[in-house]
Amino acid sequence: MTGIDGCLTEAMAIPGARGASLVDWTSGLTLGAVGDGPDGDHEASAAEAAELARLAVENGGFTGGGARHDGPVEELIVTARGSYHLFRYVATSFDSSVFLYVWLDRTEANLAVALFRMKDLATRLVSA
């Protein structure tokens, strides 16, 4: 993998992928994008997706409780009639707020395969 571009290129190889981007959920900034964006616009959809990602990650109900099985939010799955919108948070040891966002055609995609591949991509992106 060669950085952001390599990660996004590999994300587009996930069966059913129509578009992939790396988005900062603090501001909605798109750090890189390939393929199509929902509504034909990566930047606008990234900003909206970022808002959802932020609400989820800061929601104490998802992460709190202090029980052993709790922890940071890892992914978000939005299913629409014709598509999947999958978010995988990128965990870094330095300060960052980035997630991998892949938009997939539901008739071609396999949800489990896509999530598995995205987890691998998000891990390798930040593994030296």
């Binding site: 790396l22 960052s96 390798r124 992106l125």
Partner: peptide, 17 residues
Amino acid sequence: GRLSRGELELCHLSALF
């Protein structure tokens, strides 16, 4: 081998913006 390319890019872009 201190950082991955992805880490360098994410950290640098974050600092740049």
